[in-house]
């Protein structure tokens, strides 16, 4: 009985994993396809990679997306952290519940609505005060910050709640003024949450198609917009190549993160052993 059940589970697991990873594998293989038609195999080749690297349009889109992502992640982390601090460390200020609700609303708001409302907002603003005179980098970045800071705020809030207030009280007790407590204790303790919040905001921005399509303007094509517009005219092998490069880049990042986490665990284990020896 146990035997059959475990076999059943193994099969289901295999199928599940296959469902996730075979498409990605196919995409990678077809990026090395020599044929111009994606579904037709024409032998191995790296010509689409060469074409990709020579395309100025692609490079511009990559650069724009990265710029937006970095600026967005930085501002979102800053604002999200402030919002998280206000929620957890400022006690029951007036309007706290409303603030908390408004803070997480972007998490559940359909992207289409967010994008549309921001577009309307930018247009009316430009008519009223003449800014933004045209849509592009600035408007996309602002739009991204508005929704990704909610993710950072939630991450920071969870970490702040989890780490408690004792260390901050201890610092205040030792004479540290509130700002000093923030810089010497709270921020260093928050660092893991800040890093993951930043990365989350970075990824969200890099990934966003819907909101960016609403608030972008002529000449500002982000990478997802570019991919989507090219795919509309049919599958293209150079897009496969670009996707493959992105997969490799992400894999490298994940591997580095895994190594760092592993090293940290090793260090913690060493500390524990050292402490245990002292108990002796």
């Amino acid at each position: 009985m146990t035997q059959t059940r475990s076999r059943f589970l193994t099969v289901m697991l295999t199928l599940g994993l296959a469902f996730f990873y075979i498409p990605i594998l196919l995409l990678v293989i077809y990026s090395f396809n020599n044929s111009k038609l994606v579904p037709v195999w024409g032998g191995w080749s790296t010509r689409w990679y060469q074409e990709l690297f020579q395309s100025e349009e692609v490079w511009e889109a990559v650069l724009l997306s990265l710029q937006i992502a970095v600026v967005n992640a930085t501002f979102a982390t800053l604002l999200g952290t402030l919002a998280g601090l206000a929620m957890v460390r400022f006690g029951g200020f007036r309007g706290r519940t409303l603030f908390g609700g408004m803070l997480v609303a972007p998490l559940v708001m359909p992207e289409v609505i967010t994008g549309l409302s921001l577009l309307v907002f930018f247009i009316s603003l430009s008519e009223l005060i003449g800014w933004p005179s045209q849509r592009g980098f600035t408007t996309i970045t602002i739009a991204h910050i508005t929704f990704s800071m909610a993710f950072v705020a939630v991450t920071v809030q969870a970490r702040l709640t989890g780490m408690g207030q004792t260390l901050e009280e201890a610092a205040a007790d030792l004479g540290a003024k509130p700002f000093k407590v923030l810089t010497a204790i709270t921020i260093p303790r928050l660092t893991p949450a800040l890093i993951s919040g930043w990365l989350l905001a970075f990824t969200l921005s890099l990934d966003d198609l819907v909101i960016a399509s609403f608030v972008t303007g002529p000449g500002s094509t982000t990478l997802p917009i570019l991919i989507f517009s090219r795919i509309r005219l049919g599958l293209r092998p150079d897009i496969n190549a670009m996707a493959t490069i992105m997969i490799i880049a992400i894999s490298i990042c994940v591997a580095i993160a895994a190594i760092l986490i592993f090293r940290q665990q090793q260090a913690e284990l060493r500390d524990q052993q050292m402490a245990f020896k002292e108990e002796g």
Binding site: E268, D271, Q272, M274, A275, F276, E278, E279
Partner: peptide
């Protein structure tokens, strides 16, 4: 030493 490297 860091605190976590010490005994109780």
């Amino acid at each position: 030493r860091k605190p976590q490297q010490l005994s109780g």
